[in-house]
């Protein structure tokens, strides 16, 4: 399942990434495999989304969230 498919309030555990370049950026910002991630809210227009991971808030576009595979 992709992170972009979660609704606000839902949680998941990061399993892997489908894009190597984006994976480096996400990992540098604390999105590591095995880390719990929660979708906090969507922007007023539905995109981007704000997630909580590794003890802080991150925002990213839905297309970017779609490269994060969660369970």
């Amino acid at each position: 399942m992709k992170l972009s498919q979660l609704n606000p309030g839902q949680k998941g555990i990061i399993v892997s990434f489908t894009d190597a370049e984006m994976a480096v950026k996400l990992m540098e910002m604390g999105c590591l495999p095995g880390e719990e991630v929660e979708v906090e809210r969507c922007a007023p227009l539905g995109d981007p989304i704000a997630i909580r991971v590794a003890g802080y808030q991150l925002c990213l576009r839905k297309t970017e969230a779609a490269v994060i595979i969660i369970q």
């Binding site: 996400l26 910002m29 802080y56 808030q57 991150l58 925002c59 990213l60 576009r61 970017e64």
Partner: peptide
């Protein structure tokens, strides 16, 4: 283009 950004408290 990327949009991955920290939202500070």
């Amino acid at each position: 283009s990327y949009f991955i950004m920290e939202l500070p408290v």
